[in-house]
């Protein structure tokens, strides 16, 4: 994989992950600046159900506003959005969210591929997508699309991932991107915000 430059401007950050990704998110959030200049959208595989556990866990670690997405909700900079369990999360041209209860993709709903691809089309070269730990390859196709639209693909260093398969597949299949250790991610995101 070729090393990629960080974009001149970041208009949205999407973070995808599966098994082992919660750990990383819990490490990132306490160290994030609270004046982030773009929305952060989180798509993780989890069990269906109405629980707000992930939102609560993250909210306890940051002053950024954490929300589980409601359908047609407007996307606001500085807010953190979590894809609800059991829906795919899409982004509309008018910068609102759409939810979709269609077939699972990569045995997953929400699917990371679906949101990465949807975000790539809207934010193009002003998009950064981070793929974290996980044990299937959801997100890899999405990162390729992000590349095609000129956005930046960031992959958690598989050596620092509890479940390395997902980031490994990304390193193998995505042409251009940046590999980051989990501990360096908060700093990376904070720097994106100053661009």
């Amino acid at each position: 994989m070729a090393e990629a430059l960080t974009p001149d401007k970041c208009s949205a950050l999407v973070i995808g992950g599966s098994a082992g990704s919660l750990d990383v998110l819990l490490k990132i959030f306490p160290d994030l600046d609270t004046n982030i200049s773009f929305p952060i959208i989180i798509v993780t595989h989890r069990k269906p159900g109405n629980d707000t556990l992930l939102a609560d866990l993250l909210q306890n670690r940051t002053d950024l506003k954490i929300r589980e997405v409601d359908e047609k909700e407007e996307i606001v900079a500085g807010c953190v959005y979590i894809a609800p369990a059991d829906y795919h999360l899409l982004i509309e041209k008018n910068k609102t969210f759409s939810l979709d209860y269609s077939e699972k993709v990569n045995y997953s709903r929400p699917s990371i591929d679906v949101t990465f691809q949807s975000a790539a089309e809207i934010y193009k070269d002003e998009l950064v997508c981070i793929l974290l730990s996980g044990s299937n390859a959801d997100g890899v196709e999405g990162l390729k699309t992000v590349n095609n639209f000129g956005g930046l693909a960031v992959i958690q260093n598989p050596k620092t991932a509890i479940m390395p398969y997902m980031p490994q597949q990304a390193v193998l299949n995505v042409k251009k991107g940046t590999i980051l250790d989990a501990v360096d991610m908060a700093d990376f995101i904070n720097k994106l915000a100053t661009k």
Binding site: I91, E92, S98, S102
Partner: peptide, 9 residues
Amino acid sequence: YSPASIKRR
């Protein structure tokens, strides 16, 4: 219809 989801379908 929501443009993103109809386009995806």
